[in-house]
Amino acid sequence: MRFETPTSVDQAVALLAADPEARVLAGGTDLLVRLRAGQIAPSAIIDIKRIREMTVISQEDGGWRIGAAVPSAEMNEHAALKADWPGVVESADLIGSTQIQGRATLAGNLCNASPAADSVPAMMAARATARIAGPDGTRDVAVEGIPTGVGKTSLEKGELVTSIFLPAKPAHSGDAYLRFIPRTEMDIAVVGCGISLTLDDQGKISDARVALGAVAPTVILSQSCADTLIGTAGDDAALDALAAAASAEAKPIDDKRGTIAFRKDVVGVLAKRAAKIAITRAGGKTGGET
């Protein structure tokens, strides 16, 4: 097995394009686990952490570009990023332990293509896009366009994600991500829910995005859930409708981490709780009558 340390995106693309069995290493918190478990045996590992542009967080068009090799611990220390997108930063901060936080990345979490990935529902709710570099140049793709199934992505041969872009946060907006795990940490989401929403001048929800994790082969970006919120002030009736919609949208399986019934119930509970946090962050009030 070769270990490659390219210092530019072009070098990384060339290495990847030349060797279909090569794997990209960002934080390695999924890759190395699978390697040690004998689930994968790549011909080469391409470490992207020496590529300068992939290791920085920078402001762009009022939003934030986060390099593919930026660990979540750095995001958590970035006050301005956290102030704009607390839900996204918190979702990444839930992954693993303090030690894992020093390595784990948003882009890696996305490309691992697990339906239970904590940061993916939060990124989808935030309308995040992934910048992809490949032999044919660069393209930007909505985050929801990357995972296509469990462990599968839409990336073509020679392509890799170089950064995640979080757009400028609209006024009176807030986001939140919650997950359910049986423990308090060091676990994988049994259910997750990311919500981002915007209030109008009257305090009514004018825009909403709701993403449900670990309840289908890929994270569900649910329009029906969003519709229960848009036009309301996030009152109890709207939140109950959101919970019902989330439970209806969920298509989970029975497995060692939870049952179908449990996941369908709890995804509604989490949607409601996440919506309340997002509304509060947007400057609104929750829990009132219609």
């Binding site: 359910f180 049986p182 049994v190 939870g258 049952t259 019934a261 449990f262 119930d265 709890v266």
Partner: peptide
């Protein structure tokens, strides 16, 4: 008494 059992 895991969460799915308790909730059920």
């Amino acid at each position: 008494m895991s969460p799915p059992r308790v909730l059920a």
